[in-house]
């Protein structure tokens, strides 16, 4: 699961900063069949959590309605320098994680 994360390297305390996450994933709806007519089991990234210095600041729960290779963007308030950590998992049990650091002055 290739993923891309965009977090500003620097921010001022109190700033609203944009976080962008893109994950390569087929987001199988469970409604499709393969070339032989066999149903392809549902397999979507069902959860993505972002923690800022250990504290959860964003959570997305996803289902069949999301297109393949989901792209999420959200805002958080820059509080302290440190680390943003992203964890996600899909219906098949596969998980992924990424981290990014930020300097807040």
């Amino acid at each position: 699961m290739a993923a891309r994360i965009s977090v500003p390297q620097n921010a001022r305390r109190g700033d609203n900063i944009e976080i962008r996450v893109a994950i390569q994933h087929p987001m199988e709806t469970g409604y499709r069949t393969d070339d032989n007519g066999t149903a392809i089991p549902k397999n979507v990234i069902n959860k993505l959590v972002c923690r800022y210095n250990g504290v959860e600041v964003f959570r997305a729960e996803m289902g069949s309605g999301i297109a393949a290779n989901p792209y999420l963007s959200f805002f958080i308030v820059a509080a302290n320098s440190g680390e943003l950590r992203f964890d996600w998992g899909d219906d098949s049990g596969a998980t992924g994680s990424e981290r990014a650091s930020i300097i807040v002055a």
Binding site: A2, S6, R20, Q24, Y71
Partner: peptide, 15 residues
Amino acid sequence: EFANPAMLWITRGAA
């Protein structure tokens, strides 16, 4: 450059 979904394949290719 970020939202272009094809960039995920570029990231994968770089790995």
